[in-house]
Amino acid sequence: MTGLTDLKTLEKRAFRRFYEDGIFDVFLGLMLGTMAVGALVQDWIASETAGVLSMFGMSVVLVVVLMTVRRRLLRSRLGEFKPGPRRKRRIINVRLALLGSVVVGLILFGLVAAGGVSLVSLEVLMPLVWFINAVVVFGAMAYLLDVPRFYLHGFLFGLAMPLMVLPDVLWNYRVPPWIALGGPAAVIVMIGLFKLTRFLREYPVRSITEATNASP
C-alpha cells in the first residue's frame, strides 16, 4: 500500500502522474517535427503554401491522435478524477499563460503587418521572441502543473527557431531545418518515448471484469 504522504504532496503526485505517460512530450516533439517537415516540403516543392498546408494538416492529425490515445491510455491505467479547487485555479492560470502567448504573437504579427518593424531587425527579433515566448510559456506550465521537465522542453522548443534563423542572418550560414527543428524535436520525442515505456510498465491496465466483480 502507498505510504502516507502530506496532502499537498499527495495532490501534486496525483496530478503529475497524468503527465508521466510521455504522450504530451511525444506530441510536442512531433509538433516541432511537423515544422521541420513543412520546411522541407517548402524547399522541395518550392511552394510556401504547400509547406504551410502540410504543417497544418499534420498538426491537426497529431492533436486528434494525441487526445484519443491519451484518453484511452490514461483512463484504463490511471483512472479519472476531477481536480480540486486549487488545481482548477492552476489549470486556469496555465490557459491564461497560453492565451497570453497567443496575444503576444498576434501583436507582433500586427506590428510586422503594419510595417512597424524593419525586415532586418525582424529577422533577429522573431527568433528571440520565439525563444522567450517558448521558455516563458513552458516555464509557466512547468511551474503551474508541477512538471519540472517542461522547463527543458521550453528551452529545446525555444532553441529551434533561433538555431534556424540567426546563423543565416548573422553569418550567412543556413542550418538545415531538419537539424535546427528536427534536432530539438528528436530529443523531446525520445524523452517522451522513454517516459511512455516506463509508464506502460508501471501502470498496468486494470481489468474491467475484475473491477465490476469486486467494486462496491
Binding site: M1, L10, A14, A211, N213
Partner: peptide, 27 residues
C-alpha cells in the same frame, strides 16, 4: 486523504493512488 485532494475520482484512480486491491478497496 486521496479523495480529500480531488473533487471526485473513479475506482481505478483510487486503486493506483492507494495500491490496494479491488477487493480491499471495495470493502
Amino acid at each position: 486523504t486521496n479523495l480529500f485532494v480531488v473533487e471526485s475520482a473513479n475506482a481505478t484512480y483510487l486503486l493506483q493512488q492507494t495500491g490496494l486491491t479491488w477487493g480491499n478497496l471495495g470493502s
